[in-house]
């Protein structure tokens, strides 16, 4: 571990900040762009100092479809997550405490779903949805997203549940609690951090998801990433002020979530297989 003192410490911290700023620069650039006028964003040389305007955001949210797309993103990611977390918590508890014979097999299959290229997963589901008429339906997409979030949540929650002593369960049972009481009132609070981590990172995943929405969704169920690939063009070219404003509005929530829940970042980005903090 590096031990530095005095002015060298200042240099070291400045260097760290510089690295962070370099990685953030493209995002900062687009956020700046969102507050520029149309001629400002296209100016050469690039403008660093300008009078900020909110027109792009006003234009963005006054377009007929856009507020609905944002709402779709909210509704679908939140409802898929609630379903996924409840289902996963119950499954993870069963895997952790009762260790049924299918545990290893199921845990393996669940993980491999996340490893498969999304487009390979979506081919058969597309055919199935086309057959039962679930294409472009909320229920179809929400359940699909829930399914896709379950593997990750089961993995992460099983890790946390394995860390909770069985004594808690036993004590509560001896004292006359039902198994359901133990599950939701005794064990659940113990793994709150795991629930939060699973919730946040699945939420971000669905929020950012593109391909499933493109293929299984339709006009009513479009979320913003798909809108990016279809609504960008206006006046024959790419509409840059619109792109900048939409990207900014869409990126801000995940970035805030990561700021607030930074200590779960590691567990969240590794399917819950690497534990710890940074």
């Amino acid at each position: 571990m590096m031990r530095v003192r005095g002015w060298r410490k200042t240099v070291y911290h400045t260097a760290l900040w510089l690295v962070a700023l370099i990685f953030f620069a493209p995002i900062a650039w687009i956020i700046l762009g969102a507050f520029k006028t149309r001629s400002g964003i296209l100016a050469t040389p690039p403008l660093l100092i300008f009078t900020p305007t909110l027109d792009n955001f006003i234009d963005l949210f006054s377009r007929r479809n856009i507020p609905g797309y944002f709402l779709n993103s909210f509704v679908m990611s939140l409802s898929a997550m609630v379903i996924a977390i409840v289902v996963s918590f119950m499954a993870a508890y069963a895997f952790s405490r009762f260790k049924p014979r299918i545990t290893n097999f199921l845990m393996f299959m669940l993980l491999s779903i996340r490893m498969v290229p999304a487009v390979a997963v979506v081919v058969p589901v597309y055919l199935m949805y086309a057959a039962i008429g679930w294409k472009n339906s909320y229920i179809g997409l929400i359940l699909f997203y829930a399914m896709f979030s379950i593997p990750f949540s089961v993995w992460i929650l099983k890790g946390f549940l394995d860390g909770v002593s069985q004594r808690y369960d036993e004590t509560a049972l001896v004292n006359g609690g039902t198994r359901w009481h133990v599950l939701f009132r005794v064990v659940l609070p113990q793994v709150a951090p795991g629930l939060v981590a699973a919730f946040i990172f699945n939420l971000i995943f669905v929020w950012n998801e593109f391909l499933f929405n493109l293929i299984l969704g339709g006009r009513d169920t479009t979320m913003i990433p798909v809108a990016f690939s279809t609504d960008l063009y206006s006046d024959g070219g790419l509409n840059w002020t619109f792109i900048a404003a939409m990207a900014t509005a869409y990126m801000i929530p995940p970035i805030i979530l990561v700021y607030v829940f930074q200590k779960y970042l590691l567990v969240g980005m590794t399917f819950g297989t690497v534990r710890g903090e940074v």
Binding site: V19, F23, I30, G33, I224, F228, S229, A247, P254, I255
Partner: peptide, 21 residues
């Protein structure tokens, strides 16, 4: 750290869009 880790948290679609610019 939030700034450093932001690139992997935003949707690749938005990243693709503004890198086009």
């Amino acid at each position: 750290l939030t700034m450093l880790f932001a690139p992997m948290i935003i949707t690749p679609i938005a990243a693709g869009a503004f890198f086009q610019l």
